Computed example of a mutant assay.
Amino acid sequence: MSGDMGGHTGGHTGGRSGDVIVVGSGVIGLTTAVVLAGRGHRVRVWTREPAAETTSAVAGALWWPYRIEPEALVGAWSLTSLRVYGELAARPGETGVRLVPGVEAGSRLGELGAWARQVPGLRELGPDEVPGGYGYGLAARLPLIDMPVHLAWLRGRLEAAGGTVESREVGSLDEAVAEAGTGSAAGAVVNCTGLGARDLVPDPDVVPVRGQLVLVENPGIGSWFAAADKASSTSTYFFPQPGRLVLGGTAEEGDRSPEADPATAAAIVERCARIRPEIADARVLGHRVGLRPVRVGGVRLEREREPGGARLLHNYGHGGAGVTVSWGCAYAVASLLA
């Protein structure tokens, strides 16, 4: 295992920079914890549920800046993550990251931010190159992350750097701030609670956006496909993951139902089969539902206050693009603590 992530996570900087409590163990929390541990902080992750039970574990997890703001910051965060994933893809079995070719249908380069010009190999397609009658689209070889494997790898990285993951339900952020302030004058808390921030902060601008997926046996599909329907709450995508093909999806704002809806599942399969007909006969392996932590106004990444010497930082509201910006946001948090 690489000791320094090719220079991205870094090693210990020579002595601890202070104790940090990271609240939340999804991809945002664990990535933040890994980066901070690499900067010399002693990091404790407090989590109400194991990473395998978070929304992150359900994600289809293609790198792509999807439904996330603020636009002025997202590009840089996304490109930082893209560079890290490019390195991790050298060890896919260990990290869960692979570079996979695919098509983003219904998108043009001119509609995207400046970040798109820095994505290696991203190119526009002609009408005859885009399936499903979309007429235009983009092709790229992008990171596709097997989230259960990746979350386990992140935890392993954290623990190897001396960090810990503790099962602990947080009643208020003040509780974490108080504990962080007792151990070190430079102590800090980083709030990475995703949807939980709605009640914990509290922040009423955080809203759940429900996503439903269908897992099927892969009938031999080696590339990904994605097309968002801008006029509805549905999208069409399939991502080849080890041992399964992930089909999606939905984006239902305000819907908190954790149960998979059979009619929605059937519609997802039907939409995907219009692109690749062999999907219609693929055996269903299971269903997944996740609640994306979308925040009106975009990601909140800032330092709020310094009561009694313990700093409180926020890193939440990443919606359906947590994987896409996780490393970029983690380094931004580290900069705020420097």
Rank of each mutant, 00 (worst) to 15 (best):
P240W: 01
Q241I: 04
Q241G: 05
Q241C: 05
P242G: 12
P242Q: 07
P242C: 11
P242S: 07
R244Q: 09
R244G: 01
R244D: 04
L245D: 01
L245C: 07
L245H: 02
L247V: 03
G248W: 00
G248Y: 00
G248C: 05
G249L: 00
G249Y: 01
G249K: 00
T250S: 06
T250C: 11
T250W: 03
A251K: 05
A251T: 09
A251Y: 08
A251R: 11
A251G: 08
A251L: 10
E252Y: 08
E252V: 14
E252R: 13
E252K: 12
E252D: 15
E252I: 12
E253V: 15
E253D: 14
G254K: 12
G254D: 13
G254S: 15
D255E: 14
D255Q: 10
D255P: 03
D255M: 01
D255H: 05
R256I: 14
R256G: 13
S257K: 09
S257A: 14
S257L: 09
S257V: 08
S257P: 09
S257Q: 07
S257F: 04
P258D: 11
P258C: 14
E259Q: 13
E259V: 14
A260L: 06
A260P: 07
A260F: 03
A260D: 09
D261Q: 13
D261I: 03
P262Q: 12
A263H: 12
A263S: 13
T264P: 04
T264A: 10
T264W: 00
T264Y: 01
A265W: 03
A265G: 08
A265P: 03
A266C: 03
A266L: 11
A266D: 14
A266I: 08
A266K: 09
A267I: 09
A267G: 15
A267M: 15
A267E: 15
I268F: 02
I268E: 01
I268S: 02
I268A: 05
V269Q: 05
V269P: 05
E270V: 07
E270W: 06
E270R: 14
R271P: 02
